[in-house]
């Protein structure tokens, strides 16, 4: 089946991002296809390259990056959600004249239309809210 996954919760204050990560891994192991990952609202923080959790804790953004790059998954962070939370790619940093950018390679910044587009191509859209 074709799935899209929407991640609403922040990587550290909710279990949404970690659960979604495990779910995505399980889907691929079972032979399903992931049309798109859509990181919305606090979920956009999963795209930050600057998270430094303690060594004995999982680095959720890094784990996402590994999965995304290994399988060539389409991963989108919602632009409005990301900008508000200080998650910027090089183009956005340039546009808003910020002195740094921190979006992990493999993630793209785009709009909510990408969620609707993904839903149209997917058999199931699964949301991880909290």
């Amino acid at each position: 089946m074709k799935f899209s996954i929407v991640i609403h919760g922040a990587p550290w204050s909710s279990s949404a991002s970690h659960s979604a990560l495990r779910y995505a891994e399980a889907l691929l192991e079972c032979g399903h296809e992931i049309v798109r990952l859509f990181f919305y609202q606090d979920g956009a923080s999963s795209g930050s390259s600057l998270c430094v959790p303690p060594q004995d804790e999982i680095n959720i953004p890094e784990q996402w990056q590994v999965l995304i790059n290994k399988h060539g998954i389409d991963a989108v962070v919602c632009a409005a959600s990301a900008l508000k939370r200080g998650i910027l790619d090089a183009a956005e940093a340039d546009r808003y004249e910020k002195n740094a950018h921190n979006l992990l390679p493999g993630f793209a910044v785009s709009g909510l239309g990408q969620l609707i587009d993904a839903a149209g191509q997917s058999d199931r859209v699964v949301s991880f809210v909290q």
């Binding site: 609403h8 609202q41 606090d42 909510l112 239309g113 969620l115 587009d117 839903a119 149209g120």
Partner: peptide, 19 residues
């Protein structure tokens, strides 16, 4: 929370794409 606004934004975006 931001959830209420997010639900409406998704509804409006989907409608804008003629769903």
């Amino acid at each position: 929370s931001q959830q209420a606004r997010a639900a409406l934004d998704i509804a409006l975006t989907a409608a804008a794409f003629e769903q």
